Simulated assay, not measured.
Amino acid sequence: MIAMQYSFTLPADYDMGIIDRRMRERGPGTDGFPHLAFKAYLSARRGEFGGQENLYAPFYLWDQPEGASNFITGPGFQALTQSFGRPGIEQWMVWHAETVADLCNAKFATAERLPIEPHADLAALRAEETERARQTGRKRDALASISGFEARSWSLVRFMLYADMPLISGDGQIYRVGHMSLPAAVQAVARR
């Protein structure tokens, strides 16, 4: 599995209603996308939940790299780049991914990025991060708990989805979820 995220920082006076509308209208276009475990359409507003910037920042979890490649080379991503420009895309190899059946109820997300210390024991760190993701997800009633690493900058990502506003501390970013794209089989169960 791989996780990926790109982010657009928007002007302080940007009408974020435009982003909300975009997520509602275009979000269903990635529902059932091949190899997509989920896509969380995320936004953050300057001044809300301690946020410093207006952001549009989707987060993806792919069960195969082929899905990410097909998306990035496809018409949906091309339309995005025509509207906002071509973003840098962060990608992480997933150490742990845990989701629950009612993932479609996600309304909030958190993301933390942390450096990996030089000469860290990566096997031990992976075990610690996997256990932390499991325990934190259960304690905080998370709908999803993702932990992964990026080897170019040697950093970790900790990503979580919630139905209710989470209580967090630290330097993590809090987002609102505008739409959740899920595999077709998961959507069918959610509609029942």
Rank of each mutant, 00 (worst) to 15 (best):
E66Y: 05
L122R: 14
R191D: 11
R152T: 12
A133L: 05
G172F: 01
F59K: 00
A190I: 08
F8N: 04
A133C: 10
D164N: 10
G17P: 01
V94A: 13
G137K: 03
P118Q: 07
V94D: 10
P11W: 06
W62V: 04
I174D: 03
S43W: 09
A120Y: 11
S181E: 03
I116H: 06
C104Q: 03
P11D: 13
A190R: 06
M160L: 12
A127P: 05
L10T: 01
F108T: 05
L10Y: 01
G27V: 08
A79N: 02
L156I: 02
D15T: 09
R138M: 10
G47H: 04
C104Y: 08
A124F: 02
N70R: 14
T136E: 13
P87K: 05
L125K: 06
A123S: 12
A37P: 01
R46Y: 01
E128S: 15
T9V: 14
D31W: 02
P87S: 04
S145W: 02
S43L: 11
S147I: 02
R21S: 14
A79G: 05
E66Q: 14
L55P: 00
Y41E: 09
E150F: 01
P58F: 02
D20Q: 15
Q52L: 08
Y175F: 15
R24G: 07
F77W: 00
A120P: 03
D20F: 07
T130N: 07
K139R: 11
S7K: 05
P118F: 08
D121E: 11
A185Y: 09
R134E: 08
A37K: 07
I18H: 12
A68R: 08
E112R: 14
N54P: 08
Y162L: 02
V189K: 08
M23C: 09
L125S: 06
H96C: 12
M180H: 01
F33Q: 01
P183R: 07
L42C: 12
G32Q: 00
S181A: 15
L36F: 00
W95N: 07
F49W: 14
H119Y: 14
P58K: 03
G85R: 05
A37E: 10
S69A: 09
W154C: 11
L10V: 01
I116R: 05
Q91L: 10
L10F: 03
G32M: 02
A111M: 07
M165D: 01
Q64F: 08
R158S: 12
E98G: 14
Q52A: 13
E117S: 15
A151C: 10
G88I: 04
M16A: 07
A12V: 12
G51M: 00
R140G: 09
S155Q: 14
G67R: 08
Q135P: 00
W95C: 03
P75L: 14
G27W: 04
L161H: 04
I168M: 09
H96Y: 15
S69M: 05
D164C: 00
L61V: 12
Y56T: 03
R134D: 04
A184G: 09
S155W: 03
Q82I: 03
L125V: 06
L36C: 04
V94L: 12
R191M: 06
Y6M: 01
R192V: 05
R140C: 12
Q91A: 12
D102A: 08
R132P: 06
A106M: 01
E128G: 13
R26L: 04
R152Y: 13
A40D: 11
A123Y: 07
G85L: 05
L103Q: 03
